[in-house]
Structures are given as structure tokens and as C-alpha cells.
Design a protein around this nucleic acid. Sequence first.
RNA 1: UCCCUGGUAGCUCAACGGUAGAGCGGGUGGCUGUUAACCACUAGGUUAUUGGUUCGAAUCCAGUCCAGGGAGCCA
Length: 461
Amino acid sequence: MNKECIRNILSEGKVSSKIMISGWVRTRRDSKDFSFIEINDGSCLKNLQVIADQDIPGYEENVLQANTGASIEVIGEICESQGKGQKVEIKAKKIKLLGDCPADYPLQKKRHTNEFLRTISHLRPRTNTFGAAFRVRHAASYAIHKFFNDNGFINLHSPIITASDCEGAGQMFRVTALDIENLPKKEGKVDFSKDFFGEETSLTVSGQLEAEIFATAFSKVYTFGPTFRAENSNTTRHLAEFWMIEPEMAFCDLSGNMDVAEKFIKYVIDYVLTNCAEDMDFFNKWYEKGIIQKLQSIRKAKFARITYKEAIEALEKSGKDFEYPVSWGIDLQTEHERYLTEEYAKKPVFVTNYPKEIKAFYMRLDEGEETVSAMDLLVPRLGEIIGGSQREEREDVLRQRIIDNDLSEKDYAWYLELRKYGSVPHAGFGLGFERLIMYLTGVSNIRDVIPFPRTPGNARI
RNA sequence: UCCCUGGUAGCUCAACGGUAGAGCGGGUGGCUGUUAACCACUAGGUUAUUGGUUCGAAUCCAGUCCAGGGAGCCA
């Protein structure tokens, strides 16, 4: 007797072979002499139909108690289905009710709003939407590791607790073992020298600086891990805890950086379209009509590449009445980004060489010293999905940038030493994993593509 | 954090100053190789919360809490 998952039975199950399956009841329909039970085990979107004749042992206590949500184990034989809607079904010899499901089970045999499902995050993985979303999430995660592995990258587990307030990017969550009811003070301030690490520590906002360290030894590395921002952001695109992918490449410039980013996005799209066809059909039907076709065309398209200067000119010539006026030096707003990718380029577009004032200190200063070698990848609907740059590899220039940005030279001593000893041109980028999943699935709220979203006021389960 | 919208049965919504309703779900019974089956009956509500206006408030006004959409910050 083979224990099989439903996906394998539906894709390669041989008629008349005997099998055992287990899963959760999605719906049951009773006839006079037998019942239809549809079960799902999470291995795929589709349910498997089980025929339970009333003369199988324990029909009353097992089958007739197997309500929506109950877990059951079925032993039976694969048969060709007499009905429409499925090729094969299971003719049960034995059905065991493992866990019954009382009438107050919140998931009904109908569509629920994602807002309601967010209130039952312990049960929502059992729905079609979340089943599909998390199978795609898994596939994308695997594809990312495979892409980097196959391209000679080393996976770096960058630290989650950090003492460096790197790049000053956003509010950080403090990590402390101090008794917050009774904080040690020194000259009126909290004395962090008494804390676990002997200094102030936080949850990481980026693994980039650590990735740079490893890139100057392994040439090509990437991180793929959780990052944290304590910003009070309440949007469909922000989380306090999210997963970020950050490749870092030595001997690489801005153009090479974009090449990798483009190849990477296309690889993940290709992998998900090939390996999650059924789930993608679901999103194509219910979440974003035409998304499969859109992804297929993006996979083949050459991404546009324009400089910040060209972007500003395009925005000025657009004839659009933007809420935020356009001029050289402004940071691009959501409305500007969407115009550039949705109307101007009509496909993913890299915008490069931003004014140094609106970008981070570590980005490489361009000739003329007005702009830096930064790049953002903008995509329709979401806006920025990737942000990256060629890093400043010249020690003296970097030191001056640290000073100009009122950062502490002492804190970045180790960072400067990477430039002192065997410095190389290097570049990298960061990509929010959940935003990538939104882009792939058409799901419009980031809270619905992460298992347990952390947002302001919300960390339970 | 700011702006807008909303909170009515387990879920999705209606009623928009005058006795709170429907569909789905639940329960009971029936029927059927059914497809989120179908038919009949039935039980579910201090209308988020606090205060105000009014003869009378789910409905109008104000505060609070929560949610959704947009913006900012960003990935």
C-alpha cells in the first residue's frame, strides 16, 4: 500500500492501484447509498474526490461525521470517474475520521474576504488562495537559491542582531536583555554597556554591509533572510518583518549589476510559471486577469534602462499633472515611478544614476560628483521592486562621503578597511521577497503573501 | 503618521430618522453519480464602543477603537 499525496495521484495515479491518502475535507455530498468527499492535502490546488459507499465499515461514525474541515485517512483504489470535472477518483475501502470538525469551523465552502481570513491566520493556510500563494512562495524561494547556486554564488547567513546602524535606513527594533522596568542609567541616559552585548543592538534592516565583507572574499554572495523595520507604515506594500534577497558581487559594476538583476527576475518568473502552472491559473482567474501572459512577455522582454536625468525629462514632457512637481533633484514619488514603468516604458525599467543627495552614502560617486551609480528597478503596479548600486570602492572618497553624511568614521572603520586592503569594484542589490511574490501572483496586499504578517499593532501568531 | 471610506447574524451584504432583512453557512427532514449540488422547514442580532441631538437613532453629530483604500517612509 502506497501512501500518496493528492498531487501525485491526480498527475500520475494509475487506475486500479491501491493507495492510502489523508487530508482535510473540503466538502461532502451525501447520496442515498453513498457519499462524495472532496479532500485536500495541500500538495496541490485541486481536491481529490472520494466515493464512500454506505456499506464500508464505520460509514455512520466516520463518513457521515466528516464535515468540512475534518481530517480523514482513506484507503482505496484509484478509479476512472463516472462524473465530469475529474478524470480519476478514489473508491474507498476504508475511511477513518482522524479529527472531526464542529459546526463553528469558520471556513465555509465559499469565498471569504482576505480581510476576514487575516483574522484567522491559523486557519487561512487551508484555503485555496493561501494554499496557492504559499506553494508559489515556496517555489520562488527554491528558484532563488537555485539561481544563485547555479551562477556560482555563496549563500551568506548574515546576522539578525546587529550593533551597526547601517546606512541609517529606517527605524530599527531595539534588542535588549535589560530589565525595562529598571533600566541602568549613566548621566541620565540608559547605560547600554550593562546590556547583554555591552552596547546598543537592534534587529537588522539589511544584510548588505556583511554581504560586502563576504563578497570581498568569495566574489559572489547572496543573503536571503528576514529583515526588520520599525517604521509606522500602514500600506499594502510594507511589513515590519519581511524577507530580503541581497546579492553582492565583487568585480562588478552598475551595468553588470543590472544584468544579474534582470536575469534573476526572469529566472524566477520562468521557474514559477513552469512549476506552479495550476496555482498560477488560479491567480490568473481570481486575482489578476492576464498575469500569466504578462509574466510570459516580461520573461522575453529586454528591460528598459534610463538614467535619472532621462526619467526627469520624460516626466516633464509627459503632460501629466503630478501631485508632486517634477524637477531635477527630487526623489521619485510613487506616481512618478508608476508613470515611468506603466506608461513610458510599458515594462520593467531600471532608473540609474540618481543625485547623490537622495541616495545612501555607500553608493559610488559618478564622474562630475553630482550623481551616484544607483539603480532602481520599477515594475508596473508595484513601483520599486529592486534597489541597488555599485558601491564606493575608493577609500578616500568613501571616507569623505561618511563625513559629509554626518556618520561616524569610527563606526565604519571596518567598512573602510575593505577598501584599504585589496579593494575591488563591487555592486549588489536588494529585493523584497514578499513584493516579488505579489508581483508574481497579482495578490494586492503584502499581508496575504507572508505566512504571519507583522505590521503596526499586529504580531499575534 | 496624514487624507478618504467603512464597522449590522458565523460569513457576504441590505435597510439610510419610524417594528432590523436576504443569500451563504449551521441544525432538521427529503432527493439526487454529485461538482462551493438541489428542495423544504428552522435557530441565529444590546446594529464596534462612549457620549450627544430627537417624541423616536443601525441611520444625524462628536470622541475612541478597529479595518480597508490612498499618501509619506521604503523593500
